[in-house]
Design a protein around this nucleic acid. Sequence first.
RNA 1: GGGCUCAUAGCUCAGUUGGCAGAGCGCAUCGCUGAUAACGAUGAGGUCCCAGGUUCAAGUCCUGGUGGGCCCA
Length: 1151
Amino acid sequence: MPFEKVNPKVDFPALERDVLKLWDREDTFNKLRAQNAGKPKWSFLDGPITANNPMGVHHAWGRTYKDTFQRYFAMTGHELRYQNGFDCQGLWVEIEVEREHGFSTKEEIESFGLDKFTDECKARVHKYSAIQAEQSKRLGFWMDWDNSYYTMAEENNYTIWTFLKKCHDLGYLYKGTDVMPWSGRAGSAYSHMEIAEGRKLVTHTSVFVRFPIRGKENEYLLVWTTTPWTLPGNTAAAISGDLEYVKLRSKKDGALYYFAKENLNHQRLAKEFKEGFGNKPWPKDVPKLKTLHQIFHEVGGYDIEGTINGGEMVGWTYDGPFDELPAQQHQGGYAQPLDLLPTDQRDWPCGKDAHVVFDPGKDNKGSSYVVAGEGTGIVHSAPGCGDVDHTWGIHFRLPAIAPLDDQGRFVEGFGKFTGMRAADESTAEAVIDDLREKGFLVAAEKYPHIYPHCWRTGDPLVFRLVDEWYISMDWREEIKEITKQVNWLPASMRGLDRELDWLTSMRDWMISKKRFWGLALPIWECKSCGHYDVIGSREELQERAVEGWEEFEGHTPHRPYVDRIKIKCTECGELANRVPDVGNPWLDAGIVAYSTTKYNSDRNYWDQWIPADLITECFPGQFRNWFYAILSMSTMMEMGKEKKRPPFKNLLGHALVVDENRQVMHKSDGTAIWFEEAAEQIGVDTMRWMYCAQPPTTDLPFGLRHPEEEVTIKGDDGMTITHTVDGARICRVTSKPADETRRQVLMTLWNSYAFFSNYARIDGFDPTAPQVPLDQRQDIDRWILSDLQLLVGEVRDNFEAYSLSPVCVAIKKFLDDLSTWYIRRNRRRFWRGVSEGDTDKLAAYQTLYEVLATLGKLAAPIIPFVSEHIYQHLVAKQLAEAPQSVHLCAYPTKDASRVDDGLSRRMAALLHLVGLGRSARTASKLKVRQPLAQIIVASEDENVRGAVEQFQAHILEELNVKKATTQASVADQCSVSLELNRKTAGPKYGKQLGAIAKALGQADAAEIADQVGKGMVVTLQVEGQPVTLDPPDINVTKDYGQDWAGAEEGGVVVLLDKRLTEELRQEGLARDVVRFVQVARKEAGLELEDRITLSLQTEGEQLQEAIEVCKDYIAAETLATTIESTPIPNAGGTSEVKVARAALRIEIVKA
RNA sequence: GGGCUCAUAGCUCAGUUGGCAGAGCGCAUCGCUGAUAACGAUGAGGUCCCAGGUUCAAGUCCUGGUGGGCCCA
């Protein structure tokens, strides 16, 4: 079968779609799985992708890594699981479903019906997991798509139950109260893991408020807060014993204020006013903040009446700003009923009786909790509204007044505030108005700051006292031990240190969320006695169920059905209900090393696949999220075993995909690039190469989306694509890195393939012909084959080390050598006519064939589509017994016997000296088409001299010279200058170095260069003392006369003879003519093998003479049967050019 | 506030035990080309963030500062 005629202009996306159809038709993936069944296992564990939106190019980096490694380990003969994962449960899905229905509160969901709501969440997950699967297929991601795992699956949820029961049995599960960041709209607390992701710069109204000190006339504590809504919950005032406080007498009303002395003239947010907050500027509509001095000065001035140490204020009591509210008068705090408080808190005072000045002391790192800073050095403390305040409250017996319900609104007991949303600015205004009326307000101002927001709804978070379920982290040392067993890659990311850091400092893990769609926490709590049980499996639940099993049976363990089940309290015998909370979604993803590998149902299977060999994910965030969850949950599952297994052996992280200007891309402003847009405009192989070649530590500047430029993509069979699968309009995507990749890698490979294929077709090359033995092939053949073996070794080593970037570097370098040296140097072997028994031509074909076929296999895991296309045409269609797909082939192994180090070294030397030759020509403005009489190569290095000898023909041709000779030195053909080699001389002579360099500059350069050249020790007089220098201590540079063009580097000197004879000049002109004729042939659209009649007409005498002298040469090069000097009638192509300033008219016609 | 980390060409980044400051991209000039919208050569472009210190010698080691990033509080 003849080889394909290859068009150098290739449409890669179209080619990729064809290859996808081929794989589909041939069922290639399943053949691969069958072929590898029973072989040694290579285990990959997929981190679940959130099945809530279509894929963008930022997802494709990790998925390319996953596919590339799977393909490599399949080709090296391993059995794989190919299980993809979808992350299904959690608030993010609920939010989208809420949006579709226009819900904004939890009540609306409840009246809609929990059963219908969770069904819709499931449906949404199914919709987007299907979309993501289709997109992944287009990326070439080979997975067992019918066997993907879903974190909402029963096995996943029940395995988490197993985990939670283990935690409970070991005493790590507990119920606690805490003040948590809370989203009113989402109706949910946020774990500390999530909060970091939603910080925004906003402007709030902050207030200075005065608290009248009890027992003193007209004296006040001055406090400051950015959250006025917390003031109704005020319980105490915190100071620092390390601070000095001023007594300031205001002239306005004679009131005496206490606040930290440092704050009087403190320039608040002065730096932010000038420089902004990080990369965000100071908000335009917010004036510069006033100092306290200014505030008091502007209302009539003040006097300072002395200072007092903070410690002396401890124990003072004061009147709170909202003591009239019922909430302030409720014993033990508000709004919890007294009998539900922990017993030791039931005798605590009510809020209004607790108003005391106290010193909370220092945190665990030794710094004071209260500092002067932005406020007044007196901190308003509300244990029901603040995180740290709550901790203080427990320690100092300060009751918590919890004002908010689960929607973030004030509950009963707060007077006119009841029903208001804490996060609304109007609530702050209402509080401020009230304070003003009652004479508590000193000043209010606009205050910009970074404030946490709900990362899904965008609403500001408030702090709310809640019951939540926690896993204590007292076993963090065990998690660390497992963590240390993992190989964290890339090493420079220091992943192990970062994870250990997190494990050291993390707080107990809050695992509950007061929502609907998620893991049902298997905790059944008895209302009457407070006892709770944790259920570890479906079977256990059935056994314990005393009510509701019939309703539940046939449903997944989700709300609302699982809530129907009641069990009998083991303590008091009453009915216990499931706590309504659902689980933190990182529990869902964290269990997959156990759930997806059938830990509970087929322990033998788990045993074979865990620990996984590899997981790979995007780094940012995952130390606190998936990495943390999977490591800690796996550790718990291993508790009690003698030898604890890590869930995986290697973890490979990578950075983010950003736009070309290194900005994060956003869906909201249209800059996020959808997967299809990129795939069809850039090509998937190009993208895959970009991802693999990128150092994993550095963000990948992918490209730009132009939301204003809509494009239509021409698909197969006249089909056009205008929208993504999700209905977004497809827009133009540009990418300089992709263009570069396509040009330098894919096009070079394609062109090399096209070159081979087009000539092999003309010549009828038969790949099954007996191989020309290596020792009968040219040196350059054995060189490229030797380098090919070295490449195989290097690529394999790096794949095994999970290091893709060096694989790409090595392949690209080889491809470059192949294209710009091997093929370039051997073109004439392919051009010349076929003749019987021409083993040299056959050797060239066989060499290039082997290189391309092997290269295709090497690159197949990274660029599976082009590799497949090339393989199909070079191998599958040519050799009947060959595997049907490149991906069914065995990955190449290094054959050390074909490596010839000496040859590789000499070829490297040759490439170097040819480069020097070109640079010498360029420097002397002698273009390569102009033949020169001779080249002299001088070097001490025998590889260089050997190269000149061995590759004589290549040097003559490549540098267009008539003769090449070597010398050990060119000392007598040049003038020299000297320089001291400080690297070698420094350690020997130390302080004398400067003086020696000076002496060397003054010495006789020629004489010393001669001595150095002969390897002699050089003696210099330095400051009256003799100093001896070894030859390596002196660097010699040379200058050559006007007859020679010289270039030197690394001990190699190349000299080109610049003197031109008449003959050389004519030959140069003839080569110019040939080149123009070739251009004319190409423009006339002639085929490579077409013969022509040629006419060359010129007035230039020298040119005419040159054409005459070199007629045979010109004819042979241009396939001209005759060369005329008169016009040809009906010429197929004509052109007017200038050769050496003479006009030349070229006419050609097909012969 | 604490910890970690980074600062080198217009851009992105290398820079080994301290020894003549580099690569890729971009730009300019020249060249090669009947596989190559490719490629090759050359050039311009530097306060190696600042200030001290150690050393014959510091981009590199030490101290202090400035600025950015990440993490924790």
